[in-house]
Amino acid sequence: MTLVELIITIVIIGIAAAALFSAMASITARSVDPMLEAQSLHLAESLMEEMQSVPFNAIADIAPREPQYRDGSGIEALENYRVGAVVWDYSIGGQPGKRIDVDVTDPTGRTLRLTGYRADY
């Protein structure tokens, strides 16, 4: 091999390596997205379950806040998440009910909404 061929080979390998590393960086950056979505869904389901377990007349809006334990203390590992809920009154066939929209915002700013319904039975 001549020196020119060797330099051309090194340049081609360098370009290929740079493309490979940028692709890997992009994939690695997005690999945490499913974990954030799963955590957001777990938080939303937890708050929805908590809200639907109280008496019908006690269901109320929850301003966006950090996730909390039932005793009101914050969960340090989830301090970058925000959870909140909005309750809407509705009726179906004259039967009173409530629509509960639970919103969870993850650390990247994406919001997941979980909607549930509760009838006064």
Rank of each mutant, 00 (worst) to 15 (best):
R30A: 09
A25N: 09
W88Q: 13
A18Q: 07
M35T: 14
R82G: 07
G109V: 05
R99E: 14
P67F: 00
V104S: 08
D33R: 15
I75P: 07
E50H: 10
F56V: 06
T105V: 15
S53V: 07
T9C: 13
A29R: 06
A17E: 05
L20W: 09
S22Y: 05
I92W: 12
E49L: 11
A63L: 04
Q68D: 02
V86G: 05
T9H: 08
L3C: 06
S26D: 03
G74Y: 01
A60I: 04
L47Y: 02
S40Q: 03
D120S: 14
R30D: 03
G116L: 08
N80T: 11
P96M: 03
I27M: 13
G74K: 13
E37S: 12
R70Y: 05
I12T: 12
A58D: 12
Q39M: 06
V54P: 09
G97M: 03
E76N: 12
E79C: 06
G109D: 09
I100S: 04
V87K: 00
E79R: 14
L114T: 03
A119L: 11
A17N: 07
A16V: 08
R99S: 10
A44Q: 02
Y90T: 11
D120N: 13
P96C: 09
T115L: 01
R30P: 01
I10P: 04
L3V: 05
F21H: 09
A16K: 10
V104D: 02
G94N: 05
V86C: 03
D61Y: 02
G97W: 01
R113V: 03
S73A: 02
I100C: 09
A23I: 04
A19G: 14
E45C: 08
T28D: 01
T2R: 12
A19I: 08
A25M: 10
G109C: 09
S73Y: 01
N80W: 00
V32D: 01
E49S: 14
V4K: 05
T111E: 12
T2Y: 00
F56Y: 15
D101E: 15
A60L: 08
R110V: 10
M48I: 02
W88E: 14
R118E: 12
R113S: 13
Y117N: 14
V4G: 13
A58L: 10
E76K: 08
K98P: 07
I100D: 07
S73F: 02
L78Q: 15
L36K: 10
V87T: 06
R99A: 12
F21L: 15
G93M: 10
G84V: 11
L112M: 09
V11K: 04
R65Q: 15
A18W: 00
L47G: 07
G94E: 01
T115W: 02
M35Y: 08
S46G: 10
S53A: 07
L114I: 01
S31Q: 13
